[in-house]
Structure formats: structure tokens, C-alpha cells
Design a protein around this nucleic acid. Structure first.
Length: 874
DNA sequence: CGTTCCCGCCATTCC
DNA sequence: GGAATGGCGGGAACG
């Protein structure tokens, strides 16, 4: 058998001997991590030989010793360990670390099929990339931190944490409810689940890594890779970094939604998750644990990998053009095309057409072709691309997450133009240190400060090149968006066509580059970071409420096909789409021209206090305070009422509808340029109402949901800590750390906003302003609550003592809330928000618009649930 | 019996 | 057509 060809079944292999090398590795591995499956057996085994026996006593091994081998010896996890042992975590880049599939399969003595399983997962983390036909390039963990940072961001943008909560809630409800009801609930819920989230499947690529293999890989990224990324995202967005299998499976199923939720599908998904989990386990990124809910224990996995990643920067400046180009396919496309995206020049860009779906497919195909071009096997480097891409990026942001955060730190400076913020480092404490993100200004390019030194984990430090993100979302509200590129390279998110189906319309696929870079979200708004956008949250809530409605909207918007309802939303979009690019550009220019500075700030004010905090700085600070006060007051009210039953009340405050225009709505998947109008409106809005803004503010908080109730809590500490306590030793958690402070840091949302603002603003008051002293505090407060809430799972005991009442509260601490909101219906008018980001560079965001209106506030109760996490293992 | 998940058939896609 | 990939689900090992 030639090495090249696939070894057909390799039976012969058996005959081959086990190669010693492996054996040794095995042993080492075992020793190192006993827990891992095989424990004893393996140990025992080695002795002479082979296997065999292990568990089994004797059977002789004789002939078929192979058979004897216990199933465990053949597990994917063990195989992965063997595989990993062959390569260094941090390979010398200069060297070409190539992996020949056939060789590996032969050496490891396994079927090729199994190698694919491993490679797919590793590829999703960018630890390897396909370079050519039977070849992969080994990157080890050099890109891991960057990848995780991106995945986290994307996960936040997709509101995964919220989705998880919803699902959990749903599951809970089911238990209680009768069947009949379930259905109804499910429907609604499903939507959320289905809709919201994910629907989109995409595969996220790193700059350096892009599709390398052009050739072979088709774009079909199917499940395993994408599923693996999503699965990882789940961990990164959840607060207690614990994800139960069933919840993960449900989220991953996502798209199909509803109907058939067959059990089969679920089972299959679970099987796949186990496959992925086994690989992740061998990478030491997750560990198996069990969560105990009221109903019993369920299998789950806990993230034990690195917690924070720094990210990076971007630069913006240069690129405005580039950015634009991105938007507009035409120009840049060519250039870029080869590299990252192919650009399709094509096709209409964003516009959505009725036939979008089909197009998407075709597009992808095209893309594929392009990419692959000739299959050239190896990619050369990507240097080119990255550079370009780098420019694109404009801002960065980072999010901090709940946990991470530092209290102190904070700071951020805004960059003038770019709006970048840089964190100053965070001080992070141990845990989560760095969150920050930042953004670095272009100006300081060299510095990436970003990264922080501390990351506890061994990630690598981020390599310098960090990535720049776009602020992600900056826009809070909107869904879309995305990512952007980073400095070095951007990463692209691809959608999968397949996913389209149901919501296909909704998500447009990206036709153009621009799109690609973005993520879309859609639907509901997802705002990623939770809090970030109040609007988005609102939106989200709405969606929850009436998921269906949302869907429709989406669909409509996306496709024309559905005419009816959607109009509101859609109309704008459609119109715009064609011209979007132009508009955007124009807009950008305009902004640049001068508005920049002004604009952003207003927005910021308007939006949220939190935001204010940040960067904007000076202006903001005052505002902020006011806002906070306001909020608190409001919240207090709210809080009080509900606390009793354990429910956490959440109040939603509606934004004023009027402000936003329909126009603004954007459909989710697309990029939409904002219309000028909207912009205008925006201004008006701002000006018009300061008040309104305030109002909105509250909203945010509320929505923050995850936090739910909390708000300002001073709090502290939060749950996480508690959890940890429970758990025995968590190895992972470094976190134990001290306290509270660290835990929370500023909410991501805040950051996001800030960033956005900054970006928008551009200028003038740069960073300096930004850092108001106070900020940090506020931020912390806010954040903390957030942290708690996060998801529902965990729960900790109530610690009760919460200090603050009201708003702040304690409650939050206690639980998690699940959000499920119920909000009422959507409002007619406003509807959701829309937002979008442009990928564009310029300022980070271009525009944003939002709408949202909600009329009145509502209260939402959230049931608490508690869980325990035990590490179990094995 | 429920969980975990290996095995490998077979559909796709590439060449 | 054959090879390379990889979805998928039966059903066995495990617990």
C-alpha cells in the first residue's frame, strides 16, 4: 500500500506492531493525566506489550489481541493524546510542520476516519490547518489564544449565553409542565433557540490560517468543525464555565428548529459532542463534570482552559480604504480574493434577493473554487493577506467578560480616531486578567499591549499580532456584525449554506467579502455581550416573546419572499442594499469629516450610562452619574417587588420607539449600510432626547440580563466564587482568586459601547478623556451583576447577604436567572432594533441605529434555578 | 438501563 | 472511476 492511498481497512495494521513509540507516549500520558480515561489499564498494560490485556485478564492475546483491547484503548481521546504527543505545543513556525495523514494513521494505527475526527476538531481551534491533500500543517497552540478570543467574541455576539439560559429554562419548564403546554412553550422557545442564535453556521478562520488548503477543503464546513467551534464558544460565554451536554446539543441543533426535534437528531448531536469533547479533553481544555440540577445529574463539561485572551488591536487607520473595499466587493475583491476571501465579486453583494439562498450556495461554490484555486497545496504564507486585513480592522474591542475584568484597570483610552480603546492593562488579577482589550490604537501600533502578561494560562501570549477586532459589536444592538479583522488578519466567518434552510432567508450569506467578515446575527439581536446593547437585548427579549414574529421579520427582510409582514423591516433594507456600499462610504466620509466626534458621543450618552463611562469620557462622566442614579432608582423599584419569590424581576424599559425608525431595522444577516436617513434620525434623536436616553439606560440594565437583576450591584462577588468553593479543587480555576473585584469587571457591554462610541466618535477626545476615575467603579458594579447572571446554571447558594438592596443587589447573586423573557409583544412600531455594523473600517462602526422601541417597561420574572457542579469525572 | 462513543457504511467532494 | 473527506447512526462497551 502506498502510503498515499488510503489504506483500506487496515487490518493489517494490527499485525503491525504497536509501535513502541506510541506506547511510551501512552504511558507518559497516563502518568500525566491519570484521570483520563484509561487510567489503570493503561498503566498496567504496558508492560510488555501490547496491549492486551489490560483489562481483560488474560485472554490471551494471542492472536487477536487486538480485539481484546478494551474499547477504551481505542477511544478518540486517547488517540488524540497520542497524536498530540507527536508534535510540540509551540512549534517553530519557521519550520514547516507538516502532518501527513497517512503517516499518522499508520503510525497510530488507526483508521483514517478517526484521524479526520481529530483533525477537524483541531482545525476548528486552528491548531492545524489543511495544507493540501493529505496534508495538514501543525500550529500547535500558537494560535490558540487568538482563536479562543475570537470564538468568545463571536459567541457573545450570538448571544449564546442567553440562548443557553433559555434552553435551560425550557428544559426546566418542561419538566414541570404538562405536555400540552410544552408545545406551546416550545414553539416560542424554539424560536428563540432556533432563531436566535444560531442559525448560522459558520466557520471562523484566523488570519493566518485562512483556508489554507484551499484546495481541498470545500467550504462545506460541516458539522464537526463548526460544531466544535460553537461548542467552545459556549464555554467561553458561559459564566460558570460549565456546559451541560444536553444544553449544548440543543443549541447546536439550532437551526432546524422546531419541528422535528427528533430525538434522533439529538442523539446524533450528542454523539458528536462526545467526539469533540474527547478531543478537547485531551487538549486539556475541558473536563467532564456533572451538574446536578434538581432533577438529577446530567453530564456536562467544564472549561479548564485559558480564560482570557487579549486581543487586539487594530488599526485602523490605514485602512479605511481597505475597509471600504471590503464593503464593496468590487474593488478590493480582486486583491483580496485570493487571499482570504474570494471575493466574489460578485454577485450582488449584499442585497438580498429572493433567490438568495440559492445564491448563497453558488457563491460558496465559487468561493471555494477561488480559494482552492488550484489546489495548490501549500499555502505560502499568508503574509499578504494579513497585512491587508490588518488594516481593515479598525477597532478593537474586547470584551471583557464578565469575569474577567478587572477592576481597576480599566481604562481605556480611547483613541481618537480610531476609537480604539486600549485597555490599559488590566490589572487583572489573576483570574481574569486581562480582559481587556483593547484596542489599540493604531497609533500605537507597536504596542500591543494587549496582551497581557498575565494571562494565566499558558496561552501563548498572544503573539503579537493580535487580533484586532472590531468592536464587535459595537453596536450593541445590532446583530450583525461582526468581527472584524484584526490586525493581522481578520478572521472571517463563513456561513454555511446548509444552515440556511430554515431561516435561510434570514441569513444571508455573505456574498461579498464584507459579509464575510461579519457575522451575522440576526435575529434578534443578539447582542453579544449581553449587556451591551440594551437595545439589542430588548430586541432579544422581544424575540423571545414573539419569536415567530421575529422570524418572519427576518425572513422577510432577508428575502423578499415574504412580503407581507415584514415590510417594515425589510423595506429599508432592500432599498438600501444595493447601494449600501455607496452609502456607507459616503457616510463614512461624512463622518470622518467631522462628525465623528460629535456623533459618537451623543450616542453614547444616549445609550447608556455605562457606556459613558467608558471612554467617552469626559462628557460622559457626568452623564453617567446621572444615568446611574436614574437607573438605580428605577431598579430599586423593580427589584423590590420581585425579590420575593425568588424570581428575579427584571424590568424592561422600553426605549422610546419613536426614536428609531423603521428604517433602521436591519435584517440580520446582511450588512446593511445605514441609510443616511437613519443617521440623521439618529442625530435628531439624540438631540431630541436626552431624556430618552436616560430611559433607555435603564433598559440596559435590565436587560443585561444575564444579570438580570442585578444591576449595580455592588457586588461582588458573585457567584462564581461561590461556585468555586464548592468545587473541590478546581484546578483550573485560578480564579479563585481573590475576590470579587476581579471578577467582574466592567461589563463587556460597556466596553463595547464604549468602543463603539469611540469609534464613532473618533476623535477628539481621545482616550484621555476617557478614563474617568469613576468609571471603574461603576463599571465594576455593573459588571458584577452581570457576571452572576450569566447563565443560569450555576448557582450558588445564595449568599445572601447581599448588601445592597435593591438594585444592586444581592439577588443577583444568588442566582441565575434565566431569562426568559417574556416580553410582550413587539411593538408595532419600532420593532426591533436594527443595527448593523459595518465592517467597515472606519470607525468602527458605522452606524448604528437602532430602534427599538418598546413601549413600556415590563417586568419579567425569572425563575431561579440552582445547580451544583460537581466535578466528577471519570 | 442509561451513558459513552467506536466502528465503519456510505454520501460527498475532489481529482 | 477512484480517492479523500466526513456525516451519521447502529449498537456494543461501560458503568
Amino acid at each position: 500500500m502506498g502510503p498515499l492511498t488510503t489504506p483500506k481497512k487496515g487490518r493489517e495494521v494490527g499485525s503491525v506492531d504497536p509501535w513502541t513509540p506510541t506506547s511510551n507516549l501512552k504511558m507518559l500520558i497516563s502518568a500525566a493525566s491519570p484521570d483520563i480515561r484509561n487510567r489503570e489499564k493503561e498503566l498496567c498494560m504496558d508492560n510488555g506489550g501490547r496491549e492486551g490485556l489490560e483489562s481483560i485478564q488474560e485472554t490471551e492475546n494471542g492472536e487477536e489481541s487486538e480485539k481484546m483491547v478494551s474499547r477504551k484503548e481505542k477511544s478518540l481521546g486517547l488517540l488524540c493524546h497520542k497524536f498530540l504527543a507527536r508534535y510540540p505545543d509551540y512549534p517553530d513556525p519557521s519550520r514547516n510542520n507538516d502532518i501527513c495523514l497517512d503517516d499518522v494513521a499508520t503510525e497510530l494505527n488507526v483508521e483514517r476516519r478517526r484521524i479526520y475526527d481529530i483533525m477537524n476538531v483541531l482545525e476548528s481551534l486552528h491548531m492545524v490547518s489543511r495544507s493540501a491533500k493529505n496534508r495538514y500543517s501543525w500550529h500547535g497552540r500558537t494560535k490558540l489564544a487568538q482563536t479562543l478570543a475570537i470564538l468568545k467574541q463571536v459567541g457573545e455576539e450570538h448571544r449564546y449565553s442567553q440562548q443557553m439560559q433559555q434552553i435551560r429554562q425550557r428544559l426546566l419548564d418542561k419538566e414541570f409542565d404538562f405536555d400540552g403546554e410544552e408545545k406551546e412553550n416550545d414553539e416560542a422557545l424554539d424560536l428563540e433557540g432556533g432563531d436566535q442564535g444560531q442559525k448560522e453556521l459558520f466557520f471562523i478562520e484566523l488570519p493566518g490560517v485562512e483556508f489554507k488548503a484551499a484546495s481541498v477543503n470545500s467550504r462545506k464546513d460541516k458539522s464537526l468543525r463548526v460544531m466544535s467551534q460553537k461548542f467552545v464558544m459556549l464555554f467561553l460565554v458561559s459564566n460558570p464555565r460549565v456546559v451541560s451536554l444536553d444544553v449544548a446539543a440543543k443549541i447546536l441543533i439550532g437551526e432546524d428548529q422546531v419541528a422535528d426535534q427528533d430525538k434522533n437528531k439529538f442523539k446524533t448531536k450528542v454523539r458528536r459532542l462526545y467526539d469533540i469533547a474527547n478531543v478537547l479533553r485531551s487538549l486539556k481544555l475541558i473536563e467532564k463534570v456533572h451538574v446536578t440540577e434538581e432533577r438529577g445529574r446530567k453530564p456536562a463539561f467544564e472549561w479548564v482552559g485559558p480564560e482570557e485572551f487579549p486581543q487586539i488591536k487594530d488599526l485602523e487607520s490605514s485602512t479605511s480604504q481597505e475597509k471600504k473595499s471590503i464593503l464593496t466587493p468590487s474593488a478590493s475583491v480582486d486583491n483580496c480574493a485570493k487571499n482570504l476571501f474570494s471575493s466574489p465579486r460578485d454577485k450582488r453583494s449584499f442585497t438580498r434577493h429572493p433567490s438568495l439562498i440559492k445564491l448563497a450556495k453558488s457563491i460558496q461554490d465559487d468561493r471555494r473554487k477561488i480559494n482552492s484555486a488550484p489546489n495548490s497545496p501549500v499555502r505560502s504564507d499568508s503574509s499578504d493577506i494579513p497585512n491587508k486585513m490588518a488594516q481593515l480592522a479598525a477597532i478593537c474591542k474586547i470584551k471583557l467578560d464578565q469575569e474577567s475584568v478587572t477592576s481597576d484597570p480599566k481604562l481605556v483610552a480611547a483613541e481618537p480616531k480610531a476609537a480604539a480603546v486600549r485597555p490599559e492593562t488590566t490589572s487583572s488579577s489573576s483570574m481574569e486578567p486581562p480582559q481587556a482589550l483593547l484596542l489599540t490604537p493604531t497609533q500605537v501600533p507597536g504596542v500591543n499591549t494587549t496582551v497581557n502578561p498575565n494571562s494565566h494560562t499558558p496561552l501563548t501570549a498572544q503573539p503579537a499580532g493580535s487580533v484586532a477586532y472590531i468592536p464587535a459589536q459595537c453596536s450593541p444592538l445590532i446583530p450583525i456584525l461582526l468581527p472584524h479583522q484584526q490586525g493581522s488578519g481578520p478572521y472571517a466567518v463563513y456561513l454555511q449554506p446548509s444552515s440556511l434552510r430554515r431561516n435561510p432567508l434570514a441569513r444571508p450569506q455573505p456574498t461579498s467579502l464584507a459579509v464575510r467578515s461579519m457575522t451575522f446575527e440576526d435575529k434578534t439581536g443578539q447582542s453579544p455581550t449581553g449587556q451591551t446593547a440594551s437595545m439589542s437585548q430588548l430586541a432579544a427579549r422581544e424575540s423571545d416573546i414573539s419569536p415567530l414574529a421575529l422570524k418572519r421579520q427576518r425572513l422577510d427582510s432577508a428575502s423578499e419572499s415574504s412580503p407581507s409582514k415584514a415590510q417594515r423591516t425589510k423595506s429599508n433594507l432592500k432599498d438600501t442594499s444595493p447601494k449600501l456600499c455607496e452609502i456607507l462610504q459616503a457616510r463614512l466620509k461624512a463622518r470622518r469629516g467631522g462628525h465623528l466626534s460629535s456623533r459618537p458621543s451623543p450616542r453614547a450618552l444616549h445609550l447608556d450610562p455605562e457606556f459613558v463611562n467608558t471612554p467617552t469620557g469626559a462628557v460622559a462622566s457626568q452623564t453617567l452619574e446621572q444615568s446611574l442614579e436614574t437607573l438605580l432608582g428605577r431598579e430599586e423599584k423593580a427589584v423590590n417587588s420581585d425579590s420575593e419569590a425568588g424570581l428575579t424581576p427584571v424590568r424592561a424599559v422600553p426605549l422610546t420607539p419613536g426614536q428609531f425608525h423603521a428604517e433602521t431595522l436591519v435584517p440580520a444577516g446582511y450588512l446593511i449600510p445605514i441609510s443616511q436617513q437613519s443617521i440623521t434620525s439618529y442625530k435628531e434623536t439624540q438631540s431630541s432626547g436626552g431624556e430618552s436616553s436616560k430611559v433607555s439606560t435603564p433598559t440596559y440594565n435590565i436587560y443585561q440580563t444575564p444579570t438580570a437583576g442585578s444591576r449595580p450591584a455592588p457586588v461582588q462577588e458573585i457567584t462564581p466564587t461561590s461556585l468555586r468553593l464548592h468545587r473541590p479543587a478546581s484546578s483550573a480555576s485560578p480564579r479563585t482568586t481573590q475576590h470579587a473585584h476581579q471578577l467582574h469587571s466592567p461589563s463587556p457591554a460597556i466596553l463595547n459601547f464604549t468602543l463603539q462610541n469611540l469609534g464613532l466618535i473618533s476623535g477628539p477626545s481621545p482616550g484621555s478623556a476617557f478614563a474617568a476615575p469613576q468609571t471603574p467603579e461603576h463599571a465594576n458594579v455593573l459588571s458584577s451583576p452581570l457576571a452572576l447572571p450569566q447563565r443560569g446554571m450555576v448557582f450558588i447558594k445564595p449568599v445572601s447577604p447581599v448588601p445592597v438592596q435593591q438594585s444592586v443587589s444581592p439577588q443577583p447573586v444568588t442566582l441565575i436567572s434565566v431569562q426568559q423573557p417574556l416580553m410582550t409583544t413587539p411593538k408595532g412600531t419600532g420593532f426591533q432594533h436594527s443595527f448593523f455594523h459595518t465592517p467597515v473600517p472606519l470607525s468602527p462602526l458605522t452606524a448604528v441605529v437602532t430602534t427599538g422601541g418598546q413601549p413600556a417597561a415590563k417586568t419579567v420574572y425569572i425563575p431561579q434555578r440552582k445547580l451544583d457542579v460537581a466535578t466528577e469525572d471519570s
